[in-house]
Design a protein around this nucleic acid. Structure first.
Lengths: 131, 131
DNA sequence: ATAAACCTTCACGTTAACTCTAAGTCAACC
DNA sequence: GGTTGACTTAGAGTTAACGTGAAGGTTTAT
């Protein structure tokens, strides 16, 4: 099966602009063309894009994704390096999530502070207004 | 107690530029000045900055922080709105973390795939090399 | 008195990730 | 043959957030 850039754009939530951009930047291998130069994405290309989106969604930069995809293109002797890169990336993302959680605790604390202040203030306003 | 901009910069990990910038942008109330115009940060200002950093660390934009701090400056009748804003922000951050975790699962899966491929490849290379 | 630390204003820088423009090609239909 | 519309290219422009830098002047500390 082959797909036009429009179809790929719809399936991946990447704009056609972005797809050409990724190809130009070397994130994707050069896409097969029809005799008249029109891109024909293969299922293999779709898998690459799936992986790219996965990395992108976890905040990997275009530059790093490029490095990773270049390893992919070099064949199986880079499999170990790829595993290492992914594991490192995973660690970084996990660290980021942990940091977020730590900061979130502070926000939660602030919410308690403001909530307590609010209740105090509200009760102050209502003083002697009941019965 | 009062602090110079330098001291505050060191305590908060914000540059002096950033401190002036935040004040200009209205994230901070106008800071008290010495007769000659030099900023003297109070403990209250430090608390504001603490809150600002807290929001900033969880990814709140400068614009939103400004909105929040303006509410703070308006006094206790905005306490409820402030609580709501913080809770909403917290929800957004939590959602973001959840999304990250979802994406991370995919990365983990990819790692398994590559690891399996790598082991297969490595074993293939070593075929007949033992005994 | 001299050097560090502070002040203001305004323009400019940085990074990332596109996105748009202009000019052109190609295939199909009328 | 002409028009439409989807595609191509290279390269410039955009957006957004977040400051940073430089110039030029004042104040404070030793």
């Amino acid at each position: 099966m082959h797909y036009s850039i429009r179809q790929v754009s719809e399936q991946t939530d990447l704009s056609e602009h972005a797809l050409r951009f990724y190809e130009k930047e070397g994130l994707l291998p050069p896409i097969e063309r029809s005799p008249s130069g029109i891109r024909r994405y293969s299922d293999e290309d779709m898998e690459c894009l799936n992986l790219i989106c996965c990395l992108k969604n976890t905040g990997m930069s275009i530059r790093q994704i490029k490095t990773f995809m270049e390893l992919c293109a070099k064949g199986p002797e880079t499999l170990k390096a790829r595993c290492e890169m992914l594991r490192e990336h995973k660690g970084a993302v996990e660290a980021q999530i942990e940091e977020m959680n730590r900061h979130l605790i502070k926000v939660t604390h602030k919410i308690s502070c403001f909530t307590a202040q609010y209740e105090e203030y509200r009760d102050g306003c209502n003083k002697g207004m009941s019965d």
